[in-house]
Every structure is written in C-alpha cells, then in structure tokens.
Design a protein around this nucleic acid. Structure first.
Lengths: 132, 132
DNA sequence: CTTATAAATGTTATATTATTACATACTGTT
DNA sequence: AACAGTATGTAATAATATAACATTTATAAG
C-alpha cells in the first residue's frame, strides 16, 4: 500500500522525464530537456530531484551523479538500494532481490553501528557488451 | 604478498596526507593542504587520486565525493569495497568482513551480468552519535 | 648508453555538478 | 481569514572535475 504523493508541477515534469528515459539522467541534461516546459534554473531541478529521492520515486546513482526512476514498485523510500552498472554502455538497472536486501538490511559489523540505509553498486559488463 | 607500487612524488605527498587524516578528504581540501609542497592545480591532485584509487591505496566514498586511505592491508585493488558512514558526524570506516565480501563477490542476479566490482555504502548513526 | 615508450608533471582554461540567499506564491489546515 | 508548510522563481556563486597542450622523468629494450 503505497502512500500517494501528489507531485507538484515541477516534480511531475521532472519525474515523467526520468521515468520515460531509458537510463539514468544527469541533472543538467534534465534541465536542458525541461526548459521548454518553463523550468529555467538548476536549482529548480535539484529541488525536485531532492524531493523525488526523498519519497523514493527516483534514486541517485552515486558513482555517476545521475538519477533513475525507481523500478521497484514497493520501494517507498530510498533506504535499501542496489544497482548493476555496465561499465561499457553505462546501462543501469535496479536489482530487486529479496535475499540480498534481507542480508544487507540485517547486516551488522563489529563497530556497534546500526545501519538504517545502504546503497550498493555493482559494476561489470552487461550481456550485450560482454559478447562484443 | 602486496605488489610494491613506487609512488611518484605527488602521489606520495597526497597519499601521506590522506593516510594521516582522521577521515575522508575532499579533493580541494587536499589541494589546499599540499599547496605548500608545490602542488598548485586541481588536476595534479585528481591525477594522483586516480592513480591511488586504481592501485587500491585509497578509495573514493562516492556519496561524499571524498577519499579515504585503504584500511585493509590486503586490499590491492578497489574492486570490492564496503563502508559505514555516520550521517551525523560523517565518520567513515571501511568494513572488512569476509562473509560479506564473499557474499557480494559471488552475487549474481537474473540479468546474466557477471560483476567484476562493487561498492557498498551503509548509512546510520555511529555509537557516539547515537548516544547523544 | 641510447633510443623508445610509458608514466608523471606543470599550467591554463573550462566544463560539470550543486548550493546559498532572498523574494514570492501556492496548498491545506484550523 | 490567518497560519504553517511546501513549492516556486531568479541571480549569483561554490564545489567538483576534466580537456588540451607542453614538458619532464622513469623504465625497459636493443
């Protein structure tokens, strides 16, 4: 049961763009693409991105400074994320594997720290690129 | 048996600084700190950082755009890294847990992609910050 | 030793990513 | 209507990172 977040005008414009995109999008590429819709400044983009990340509609791919729509319908908040990234074609996909997420969500080490969030990025070559 | 990498002058200056630092250091803070040693330009710093990352002497904390010395003596290359990050004091430490690294190194999902590298960042409150 | 090659350095300029600061407007309560 | 919280608009600037080009140093092969 997903809480309905009524996206604001800018949030909706930016989410729709990212959601339609094939891969992760960078902030200034988003900006360029939404200028015709009246969004003129980087800050307008970053504010929408911040909110969309906060509510889990998109995730940030930290190693790429790029944003991707959540591909995991029951992922309400970005607190347990895993991605596979092709180092050749830069294709990114979200991994939803319940064993992995269980394992990592319950992970604790000797430091006595309780983790509330994690982000995991796997790198390699995707099927297509491997066979080239 | 660790391959001896003879660091160059700039690499050594920058590695020593990061290694002595308590926590992760940002590129421009490194630059500021090594200017008295004759390193004047961002690119000189980034080139040394790139090399040090490549040979595994330091790691990049992607979510923070910062660099930390490898705390794991047998980690020759940055191909399997995990960190715990306190969201309050920003303390970062490298996790070396053989079960975790085995689990992740052997992980494969349905996409048919074979991973050659991963980076995992856990977030939470460290012991000190939790008790405040 | 010298020639070739790769790696590292120095320098300037510029590209890319992200935030500060401040003013205004919209949305949903009580 | 008054308030609080959220969102927007705009300009300026900070922070992070790379491109391009010239030169020098280190390493290895002949």
């Amino acid at each position: 049961m997903q809480k309905e977040h009524n996206l604001s005008k800018n949030q909706k414009i930016i989410f729709d763009l990212i959601d339609k995109s094939r891969g992760p999008m960078k902030a200034y590429s988003i900006l360029f693409n939404v200028q015709k819709k009246g969004i003129k400044a980087p800050l307008q983009v970053y504010r929408a991105l911040d909110k969309l990340v906060e509510i889990g509609k998109i995730h940030k791919i930290e190693s790429r400074n790029a944003f991707i729509a959540c591909q995991n319908s029951n992922c309400q908040v970005s607190k347990a994320t895993a991605f596979s990234i092709c180092e050749s074609c830069e294709n990114v996909s979200e991994i939803s594997n319940s064993k992995l997420s269980k394992y990592l969500s319950n992970f604790s080490d000797s430091s006595g720290m309780k983790y509330s969030k994690y982000n995991l990025e796997f790198f390699g070559l995707c099927k297509k690129c491997k066979s080239k």
